[in-house]
Design a protein around this nucleic acid. Structure first.
Length: 307
DNA sequence: TCAATCACG
DNA sequence: ACGTACGTGATTGAA
């Protein structure tokens, strides 16, 4: 196992950004930290959070986990419940492209990274090694961002030739995704914008630039924005549905945070079963696509263990 | 005031 | 031949 190396720079960042300021921001009246959610800041339709930003509370490093542990439910009778969409952006790509292989993997409930590795490396899912799954995961993520063979090579620390072979294999298996991506860029060139499933637009004035670097940037935006933006559409619809149902059932639990593909609730112990059912249903049924939306949920006393 | 670095999805 | 993975916010330190 590779140990997480905590450098002095990281400690300094954690202290100056979280450990020192957050305790001073606890509201004197209610004992809680309040963020602001901005609805008109991002290019894709995501929310952003500031003063303080509660969408970038640490979780990856060991010391960071200690910080996240400090976020707890409001009292004895309450727990934090975290509910996050599983692979929402890949499901959206699958649905928007209607790629038969990727749609099938999600419809059958397969582990998408293992399924991808099996296809790319011509193996059965059982034969896929950890490194192969990890490589497939990197490609799946890279696809969402319009990553090149060069970028994948750097990311995986392999040669450009090896990276190109993996990507070529990927598109041989998921050919309709390639068509979808090319089609999205072509449409962006004609229209000057791309749009999400709820028709929100992102304008791309540089999509026809004669400067290849500038144009390349806009092309990656064209690919990414409908995916990231549609995920934002879906969780926003879910939030409205959740709130409506919570009101209808007159619950005292509260929806307290949104972190892009995750909702966090402060749940009263007598409402746990109701909340689990209601939130799962609202999130999974926020939209109807050709692939199922699935959520994972956990309940705990603090945010680290609820995640 | 802004770029670099780091935190998150 | 070019550069090369999307979206944010906070802090720091140089200009």
């Amino acid at each position: 196992m590779q140990m997480a190396t905590i450098t002095p720079e990281i400690l300094k960042k954690l202290k100056s950004t979280y450990v020192d300021p957050l305790p001073t921001l606890v509201d004197k009246v209610d004992g809680r930290i309040h963020t602001s959610f901005m609805q008109t800041v991002t290019a894709t339709g995501r929310l952003s959070s500031n003063n303080p930003n509660l969408q970038n509370i640490p979780i990856r490093s060991e010391k960071g986990k200690e910080i996240r542990k400090a976020f707890v439910a409001r009292g004895e009778d309450y727990s934090l419940m975290s509910v996050d969409y599983s692979q929402i952006e890949l499901r959206i790509i699958a649905a928007l492209s209607n790629d038969p292989n990727m749609v099938e993997a999600f419809q059958k409930g397969h582990d998408i990274h293992t399924a991808t590795a099996a296809k790319v490396f011509h193996l059965t899912p059982e034969e896929v090694s950890k490194d192969q799954r990890s490589a497939a995961k990197a490609v799946n993520f890279g696809i969402i961002y319009g990553q090149s063979a060069f970028g994948l090579a750097q990311n995986l620390n392999i040669s450009r030739k090896e990276a190109k072979e993996i990507i070529d294999n990927y598109f041989a298996q998921y050919g309709t995704i390639k068509e979808y991506m090319d089609g999205t860029v072509a449409k962006a060139r004609e229209n000057g914008y791309v749009e999400t499933i709820m028709k929100r637009r992102r304008y791309l004035p540089d999509i026809n630039s004669t400067n290849a670097i500038v144009r390349g940037y806009a092309e990656r935006n064209a690919i990414n924005a409908p995916i990231q933006g549609s995920a934002a559409d879906i969780i926003k619809l879910a939030m409205v549905a959740v709130r409506k149902e919570m009101q209808k059932q007159q619950l005292q639990s509260k929806m307290i945070l949104q972190v892009h593909d995750e909702l966090i609730f402060d749940v009263h112990k007598e409402e746990v079963d109701q909340m689990k059912t209601l939130v799962k249903s609202a999130m999974e049924n926020a939209v109807q696509l050709t692939v199922p939306m699935e959520v994972e949920m956990e309940l705990a006393k603090n945010w680290l263990e609820a995640h």
